[in-house]
Design a protein around this nucleic acid. Structure first.
Lengths: 154, 154
DNA sequence: AATCTTTCGTAGGTGCACTGACGATACATG
DNA sequence: CATGTATCGTCAGTGCACCTACGAAAGATT
């Protein structure tokens, strides 16, 4: 038998980490608004009127997924979606007052939740944790767009 | 405007980390067999004849999710599923020869993939990375089963 | 033996995430 | 100006992950 200890597999741990966060979010932040939905709201607070695809890029969602998330937020009246008059392909997004309200209201709860989430780690470990995850995630992100073949590499 | 930097939110990073891993798995390990599916195969290599619910517990999947994953693996002929004669509620799972073959074949690729995944980190950082993620995930796992109320806590 | 209570699996519903394909629009080249 | 290419959004399909609710089976209590 060649069974392996999954506890040493970063991918398996990443999945469990995300499940843990999902659970905590659901109990401590909101049952209606999910974490990806909040990320979209947040991106639109920072840059109102952004087009749908760019919002997806900002928060790490592909075109299919951002379309669904935006659709749900629109159905709940948290954002408006209009065609760009300058470029008929684009959909421009903008939060409604209700969307702004929801975003503001969740801020406090998210801060509390993050504290609980990271509570098992000492303060300096928390900083390391953030740094390491970001570096790994960013690196793999780079493999996604395999360096435009403007000049074919040898 | 009260927009926040998501790069400091562990939950958001956890999601991006998992997406990164998904992408890498899909390109470097397998397009047919997913990471959760492999986890199930692995659990059954270690303990053949385990019941469905326990397998789910071992790999971190709830009853609904493990049912779907098992169903897919069964449809592909990678495992057999029989009712426990001793306990008619349980489904006992066992890998087929093909299931064993798939598990064995993926092992090498997964090792390679893990190296690439963790490549952005130095060797000592990789160990810290694993340790920190596991501690955070395990702690949140504990919040799931809120300590049986055998003796009501004060 | 008859009645709770718990446990296991399943079914239905929601939501994220990816792929591949398609139509519409925009842009670039000839 | 016409053709070709790239981009944006959408649609269909697959898969993970959760919740609630339900029936079947097992165990505990009376």
């Amino acid at each position: 038998m060649a069974a392996v200890d999954l506890a040493t597999h970063p991918g398996h741990l990443a999945r469990r980490l995300q499940q843990a966060h999902y659970l905590l979010w659901n109990t401590m932040v909101s049952e209606e608004t999910t974490s990806p939905q909040y990320a979209v709201l947040n991106a639109l607070v920072a840059e109102p009127g952004l087009d749908q695809r760019t919002v997806g890029e900002r928060v790490g969602l592909d075109r299919s997924t951002i379309a669904e998330v935006v659709s749900r937020l629109g159905r709940r009246g948290l954002l408006d979606k209009v065609r760009d008059p300058q470029d008929g392909r684009r959909s421009l997004l903008r939060l409604t007052d209700e969307g702004l309200r929801v975003h503001r209201r969740l801020g406090v709860r998210i801060a509390r939740m993050n504290q609980v989430f990271l509570a098992p780690l000492a303060a300096d470990e928390q900083a390391v944790f953030i740094d390491l995850i970001r570096r790994v995630a960013d690196a793999a992100e780079g493999l996604r767009n395999p360096a435009e073949p403007t000049a074919a590499p040898g």
